[in-house]
Amino acid sequence: MNHTIFEWTQTACAHIRFKPDRAPVGAELTNHYIDCRDCLIRGGMARQQAERVALEALGDPDETGRLLNKMHKPYLGWFWVFSRWAVTLTTFLFLMGVFRYPVKDAIQYYFYGWPTFFGAEEKGVDLTSLKPFYNGENQEREWFRVYGVCTQTAQAGDYTVSVERAVRWQSWYEEEGTRHIYDGFRFILKAEADSLTLDGPDAILNYLSLRDNMGNEYVNR
């Protein structure tokens, strides 16, 4: 039975030139056949006879297929498929433009124990003046200077980096009567880019250091 209805739908759907529509149309016609067959069985007809009658009721598969093909024009079908893709792509690009998608937002990165930082406050260093700068991937001292205060940013390749927040802390321990002071700070670094095709900004972090308002440089180690 299944083979027969399968053949019928295969023959009918082969006339539909827009191939993506063949499977759903075939499924609909098969369902129609099952509905008809089951109805006849419920009405008291023997299963085998009901199957034959239901199949005959479907009519000529070639004639049905030709009529269905007229309703499933390939150019209309493909136009519909491409339109949906175009709308999706346009919407995506529009949203990208509106929101300037941040690739990796608020990356936490830590700097520890810089000797030059020790006693910075006593020297009049304003921690809020800390600015990141970038010395290039070749580690040569090619500085990328930063302008502005608090919203200070540096351009590191395709990324814009900025210090979102900095916290200074001091700790100490005593050993053999000598107090050892550990002085440092942490900050949250933000890296943004407009393109989704870039790699993550992790690589540039190796080359980032800080400079304060006194001109002191704190090199990342």
Partner: peptide
């Protein structure tokens, strides 16, 4: 309605005078 339901109802409402073929209905 689904396809078979339509054919059945049409036949019922018309006292079997209108018997739409599947080959006509689906297109």
């Amino acid at each position: 309605k689904y396809g078979y339901e339509m054919i059945s109802q049409l036949a019922l409402r018309s006292d079997d005078a209108f018997q739409l073929k599947e080959g006509t209905l689906y297109p």
